[in-house]
């Protein structure tokens, strides 16, 4: 098997995550989908690392994880405060951008 299949898998997971972001209304699920996309990226990075035979790809993946952790913390905090004020976790309810 060619390890490039990992890349195909990453692409597939990324696409599924992106579509999920677009389809789901629940902010938490949307957030999970974003995590899925990030993980797909990480898989791609790790695969690249293997392809090139150096560890830089893994370093990038590592940083991605750290940033994702920070993002999760802030994002979940936002969801919680959103839920507190609106009693709903639906992203469609926060449609104040409309005129």
């Amino acid at each position: 098997m060619n390890p490039v299949n990992y890349l195909y898998l990453a692409a597939l997971l990324f696409t599924i995550g992106a579509t999920g972001v677009l389809i789901r209304r629940n902010a938490i699920v949307v957030f999970m989908c974003i995590e899925l996309m990030l993980n797909a990226c990480n898989l791609a990075f790790v695969t690249f690392s293997r392809m090139h035979g150096n560890l830089d790809g893994q370093i990038i993946a590592f940083f991605t994880m750290v940033v994702a952790a920070a993002e999760v913390v802030v994002g979940l905090a936002i969801i919680v405060s959103l839920f507190r004020t609106r009693h709903s976790a639906s992203v469609d309810d926060a449609s104040l951008m409309k005129l």
Partner: peptide, 17 residues
């Protein structure tokens, strides 16, 4: 065109995507 601006974040996300 205004109808595109429906205020739903998901719609905007679709355009971005």
């Amino acid at each position: 065109l205004r109808r595109l601006q429906n205020g739903f974040a998901r719609s905007y996300a679709v355009s971005m995507f």
